[in-house]
């Protein structure tokens, strides 16, 4: 299955720490088209380590597109040129011999760079802690079938819930807004009957938290939806807008 290797030039953002000045470093690579993008970086790192040099710091974990840990901006696009996948699912057969590829970290004031391509996305967790839950205690719940939920509602909630929290929406948005992420969670609970009691307080608390952490404002360009690896819909943002309005006038 080993195909002919392709030769590429990588320009990778290197930055020692949050306060240091970063710059691009060039790496010439020859890579199998069957290799994944991150495996290519592993390979570069292995070579760097062999030479006693510091490897490129980048994050990844499951490498199946579900944990949301990885996230690189490749030629200006979060998770690279192929829609509906995370960086770890990007394979090199999508690039051509001789290509130059720019690899940058997610850039946003709310996502400070930690090192090289690794950023701090904990602001997203702070938003979740502000209200992204249903308040039930262990065992204080009724039987799972006691509240029938229409199939379409359950599946719409599932679509919203499929968000992997990678932050690509923030990275893609020209305003670095977190609206798609926040609205996905708000929507999941707003759709389900279990989420109704806290529906309006939840949206209020989560938006308040979102506004605290330096994310930009939504200007409806929908770049978030286009780059979301799970295709989370901007309908969720509309739903959040609506709920927020209701929360305020109630």
């Amino acid at each position: 299955m080993e195909h002919k290797k392709i030769n590429l030039t990588l320009k990778v953002w290197r930055q020692q720490d949050a306060n240091a000045k970063g710059k691009f470093a060039d790496y010439k690579v020859s890579v199998s088209p069957d290799s994944s993008f991150l495996e290519m970086l592993d390979d570069i790192n292995n070579d760097l380590e062999k030479k006693g040099m510091e490897p490129i710091t980048f994050e990844s974990d499951c490498r199946e597109g579900i944990c949301g840990t990885c996230g690189l901006v490749i030629n200006g696009q979060p998770h690279g040129p192929i829609p509906r996948i995370a960086t770890c699912q990007l394979h090199m057969r999508n690039f051509k011999e001789g290509d130059t590829i720019y690899v940058e970290p997610f850039r946003a004031k709310a996502f400070p760079i930690i090192k090289d391509l690794m950023v701090d996305r904990s602001a997203m967790d702070r938003i979740m802690e502000a209200g992204g839950f249903i308040s039930v205690n262990t065992l204080s719940v009724p039987d799972g079938n006691s509240i029938p939920i229409p199939k379409e509602v359950a599946s719409e909630a599932m679509d919203a819930a499929s968000c992997i929290g990678c932050g690509a929406c923030v990275a893609a948005c020209k305003n670095a807004s977190a609206m798609l992420f926040v609205s996905a969670k708000v929507s999941q609970f707003a759709l389900l009957p279990q989420g109704q009691p806290e529906r309006y307080i939840r949206v209020d608390e989560m938006v308040k938290a979102m506004d605290q952490y330096g994310f930009g404002n939504c200007s409806n360009t929908y770049a978030c939806e286009a780059e979301c690896p799970k295709g989370v819909s901007i309908k969720n943002i509309a739903r959040m807008n609506r709920d927020y309005f209701m929360a305020k006038i109630k």
């Binding site: 249903i134 065992l139 509240i147 509602v153 359950a154 599946s155 819930a161 389900l192 279990q194």
Partner: peptide
Amino acid sequence: QCVGQGVPFAR
């Protein structure tokens, strides 16, 4: 428990 937490199980 999971239903109560809002896990969107298939219906």
